[in-house]
Design a protein around this nucleic acid. Structure first.
Lengths: 114, 114
DNA sequence: TTATTGTATTTGTCTATACTAATATACTGT
DNA sequence: ACAGTATATTAGTATAGACAAATACAATAA
């Protein structure tokens, strides 16, 4: 159980990196929120754009109620941010880190050529 | 629903990338497997090393039975591979892609300096 | 005001997941 | 063969998650 140096730029240990309970739990909560097929699809539909609930419903393909429930989960976990304009609510991916994670997952999981 | 070119190197659409149901479901299954605190911790304990069940139990900190069940989930979903040597079973992260995903998640979620 | 559209919330039900305790299996050493 | 150690499996229970249907709320249009 040691201190495995990772490079010259920093000298913290592997254990410091992610084995800290706090980080683990934070990551776990976020991943759990993301790891549902419909929610993953919502995130993909959003990308780096801002999209209304109605458009999300149309693109993802389940009931409005169901989408709204999933959006609430993503919003409550801090994955999505929302903005209300008149009659509609627009959602977007809340922070840069999550956006990066999504694109990284696309690299890892997608069968498309790259 | 269009074709948003991403760059000069490739001309596939955003939709092609991850909105395909098959990719979504594959990613979703993997993420679900990863998104449990104990399983995330197991992956962090493993890193790119090969570790015996006993050592995982000691490092992660729950019952042997519980660890074994989580290992089975990770193994069945193709996240982990295992090798038996005499009395013991050694686990490791199965493929390079998952290893990359883990380190990317560390970047995104970890509070440690980088 | 009433009707309409867009979104959110609540409630009930069904299924999946997590954990523990107990037991089984497999290998090793004597 | 027996005892001991390492790992896996099973069964039971408790909790969380998913979905649909109905309803509520908010804003606009008439």
């Amino acid at each position: 159980m040691g201190s495995i140096a990772l490079g010259s730029k920093c000298d913290f240990t592997i254990e410091d990196m992610l084995v800290k309970e706090e980080d683990i739990d934070r990551a776990s909560r976020s991943l759990k929120a993301i790891s549902h097929p419909l929610r993953l699809k919502i995130l993909c539909v959003l990308g780096d754009k801002e999209v209304s609930v109605q458009d999300i419903v149309d693109n993802v393909g389940t009931s409005q109620s169901n989408i709204s429930q999933h959006l609430a989960i993503l919003r409550d976990k801090g994955i999505l941010a929302s903005r209300k304009d008149a009659n509609r609510v627009y959602y977007r991916v809340g922070d840069y880190r999550t956006l990066r994670l999504i694109s990284m997952m696309q690299e890892v999981f997608c069968s498309a050529p790259h």
